[in-house]
Design a protein around this nucleic acid. Sequence first.
RNA 1: GGAGAGGUGGCUGAGUGGUCGAAAGCGAACGACUCGAAAUCGUUUGACGGAGCUCCCGUCCGUGGGUUCGAAUCCCACCCUCUCCGCCA
Length: 424
Amino acid sequence: MLNPREIRENSSFIEEGLNRRGLAVNLNSLKSNSKKLKELELERSNLQAEGNRIGKEVGLKIRAGNKANSEAVVLLRNKGNEIKTQVGLIEEKEKALAKSIKEEILQYPNIPYSDCPDGKDEKDNIQLRTWGTPLIGESYKEHWEIAEELSLLDTERSVRIAKSRFITLLNQGAKLERSLINFMLDMHTSNGYTEVLPPVLVNSASLEGSGQLPKFAEESFRCSEDDLWLTPTAEVPLTSLHRDEIIPFELLPIKYVAYSPCFRREAGSYGKDTRGLIRLHQFNKVELYWFVDPSNSREAFKKITSDAEAVLQALELPYRVLELCTGDLGFSASSTYDLEVWLPGANSYREISSCSICDDFQARRSSIRTKRNKQTQLVHTLNASGLAIGRTMAAILENGQQSDGSVKIPKALVPYFGEALLKP
RNA sequence: GGAGAGGUGGCUGAGUGGUCGAAAGCGAACGACUCGAAAUCGUUUGACGGAGCUCCCGUCCGUGGGUUCGAAUCCCACCCUCUCCGCCA
């Protein structure tokens, strides 16, 4: 959430920031509404002060022996009633105004970081570095072909169970998925992360807190009778793990790693990635999440990204790192690095991890603060996939494929998977 | 799902109409004592907003309404938690 105070006092900075994302926004009415609200608050609190004074006076008079229906007391009571009516009127206005202000502010995404490269869409993202040597050639198969030949999954029967874009893993496919989850969790926990297995259903407040609501309701599956939604990413429950809390400063940074299934409607992506493991309504993900001291969050951002990269390196998967431009940033992020893994069958890089720093955007929405020397301030939050499991499996299949139809399992994963080779 | 109990500050927990933002204890911070520490003693210790920014004003005792000059305290609705029973992996 944008800072309401900053909107009042420095709205042009906010407007410029939103403009850099490609949003032509004019905050004048929001700004004047916000100021108007402050005026109403002041007016009301003055009246309340007067009312409190009268209340005390009545108490004193009665204790001094005046009857409740004596003239002096009745006069005060009438005055008190008058004030109460006025306060009620102001409060009504305040409530309506505050509601419309909040509704508007919740619509606005985070301001891009000053160093975030300007750009319109994904074409303007900047490649920072690559790792490994991409396999390039005509003969590489796409992962769904390999998966089918090795009977790792069943697409058609999955439609019977649920609908299209759900997948059922079988045999070694199921085991590979499981071993990847365990491998990643072990890797991160041995690197200082606290493991979390959060609820997969989350309430509306949690979605609002991390930035999915109110704007992206159509992206999530909802259990309408319970105010519960299927979580689109573990980022949601992890943010809310500390919602409405003041975290002692000594505890920062808090680093969590959570495995969770993720559910997304993928609205508006019909016809895209219809085959295979790339774009599903349900997929597994291991997510990294940090709560940090705002004064060194940019360093933390580099670190969480390298923690995600370490997984790709351990699995010997070539990848590149992109810095997203302002036009391609996610709603809550102020900066994002995307990790894209090389898929030789598709002959392209595909996003496998998104590493974002949200500054205080989620912390303000979720009211997560820290306290040092009597100073409370919002924390900064960061998240990174470490990694998306299904896409990792696709990458392993495509990068490890052998001419005889088998697939080589990355060395680091062998102890988890139990075999060095996937064979028909 | 049925029955009961309850939601108060970092925690425990008192408070049933008038200086109650809230006793007491614990915890924490600072100071004294000490070579140092423990123990002990003293002081301090919630959040948000506003302002003449450590003194002032307002709001906050699950949430939202209501009664009253005045509500943590009374009334109504809702939410949540706990215990027991039922069901169940």
